[in-house]
Amino acid sequence: MELYEVDLMVNNRAVSARIKAETTLLDFLRENNFIEVKRGCSKGDCGACTVIIDGRPVPSCMTLALQCPGKKIYTVKSLGSWDKLHPLQQAFVDHEAVQCGFCTPGMLMTAKAFLSDQPHPSREEIREAISGNLCRCTGYQKIVDAIESVGKGGEYE
């Protein structure tokens, strides 16, 4: 079995490893301690493992790690810190848009990329944007509320 050297930029940090050809970005990230990227289905059906690659939200289980050198990869940990939450994170806290929290890291990355493209979306546009991220707890209500509130804030990015 052949192994390949790979160097990826994750959250502006270089991460190197020797991996198998079929290693998905999700597996790579989790094996390299980016455990904030959640494994829900491994088949691109749930969106829990969403990360931002070159500005776009992508399920990391649907991308090979070897496809990602030279790309900028961001996980939820790139957003804010305990002392200074990102406005989206703050909105999720304020609206209690989090229940179990398992879909949250992926949901936040999708919302982040979406708001960067479209800073003032309608609720319908928000529902379209997050439709690849399943949440089984909330019925999406407070998630849509939270994203909308950031869009309305006008100060995004």
Binding site: E22, K43, G44, T63, Q67
Partner: peptide, 23 residues
């Protein structure tokens, strides 16, 4: 492998076990 959506599912499910992944 361009996007990879189907291929990676086959690999995960075990229905595809070998080959050269041409990116």
């Amino acid at each position: 492998l361009a996007g990879g959506s189907n291929l990676l599912v086959y690999i995960k499910e075990g229905s595809l076990k070998s080959g050269t992944l041409v990116d």
